[in-house]
Design a protein around this nucleic acid. Structure first.
Length: 297
DNA sequence: CCGCGTCAAGTTCAT
DNA sequence: ATGAACTTGACGCGG
């Protein structure tokens, strides 16, 4: 069981990613920003190693405008050595990396150019993980997208676009339930028919539930979508911020509730990505708590 | 140098 | 039909 956090490392000097506005995005500046961001990633991996954190989501901002036409740099060649070293560092410490395109990457849009941009964005994410030299268990997590007034037709559009993706993308792509449109049963129906691993997100499920099964039953069904080459099942775990809208992540993870969740899991060979405001701080806290309870070595 | 408006992007929902 | 919300910290301008 690995525990991890997403994108940002709080309280650690020299780990802020840099970016720029579109109008300033010259090749020279982009080159400098990428160089700087790869140094940041190296620092973050070092921090993770020192703290026994073996699961980490790399921010999509690691390469500024990574899938935008303004960025024509062949960064995967320019920085090939650094990228390969970063991947080796991750691999040698049994770390698992992932990426997660945001809400604007919509593969199932009825608008062609939106789909084209989504495919470009997936190409960028896959290329980044490929350039690290990491295997297909280092995943790209994607939401299904919009409903457009016709859920079934929109799911079919997702499937037909998925089938057209490059093989290196399909090897890494996994899909997740969201808190508004696609519930876990919807996602699983596509995951099972197409052989796409499914990430169960507990808070999205709480906010947007499919009550035809219990949470634990859904987690078990999701487990069956992870094939050996995909690595252990991944799930997203977060807790509700009581002062914010439904679905908003809490400031920190409350350990007792987390331990209760882990104790109930049907299978302990699961990697858990925490989605929480205090990021690595909660990851350290949860790893410590799991160790005290002998869930991990 | 500080603080605040703006930011590349798509969908949904409220007005 | 238009625009805010989603989500977010960092950029970048104005004072």
């Amino acid at each position: 069981m690995r525990i991890g956090y997403a994108c940002l490392t709080v309280g650690v000097e020299g780990t802020k990613l840099r970016t720029c506005s579109l109008k300033n995005a010259t090749p020279a500046l982009l080159t400098e920003l990428i160089y700087s961001n790869l140094l940041v990633l190296d620092k973050v991996l070092d921090y993770n190693i020192q703290n026994d954190i073996k699961l980490f989501r790399i921010s999509s901002d690691i390469i500024p405008f990574g899938s935008h036409p303004v960025n024509k740099l062949e960064w995967w060649q320019i920085f090939a050595d650094q990228l390969k070293n970063l991947g080796q560092k991750s691999h040698s410490h049994n770390m698992r990396l992932s990426m997660h395109p945001g809400q604007y990457t919509v593969l199932n849009s009825p608008i062609d150019v939106v789909v084209e941009r989504a495919v470009e964005d997936l190409r960028y994410h896959a290329r980044f993980l490929d350039s690290l030299g990491l295997g297909p268990e280092n995943k790209i997590v994607l939401h299904v997208g919009g409903v457009y007034g016709d859920r079934l037709a929109s799911m079919e559009r997702f499937v037909s676009e998925y089938r057209r993706l490059d093989e290196n993308i399909r090897q890494r792509l996994v899909i997740e339930n969201d808190d508004r449109q696609y519930r876990i049963g919807d996602v699983l129906s596509m995951g099972r028919s197409e052989g796409i691993p499914v990430v169960f997100d507990n808070l999205h499920h709480q906010v947007n539930p499919d009550n035809t099964h219990t949470e634990l039953e859904w987690i078990e069904v999701c487990a069956s979508t992870w094939k050996p080459q995909d690595g252990p099942q991944k799930i997203h775990y977060s807790q509700q911020d009581p002062s914010k809208r439904p679905g908003a992540h809490s400031a920190t993870i409350h350990v007792n509730e987390f331990l209760q969740f882990v104790r109930n899991l049907p299978n302990s060979d699961v990697d858990i990505m925490l989605e929480v405001k205090d990021k690595n701080l909660s990851a350290v806290k949860c790893i410590h708590a799991l160790r005290m309870s002998n869930f991990i070595k």
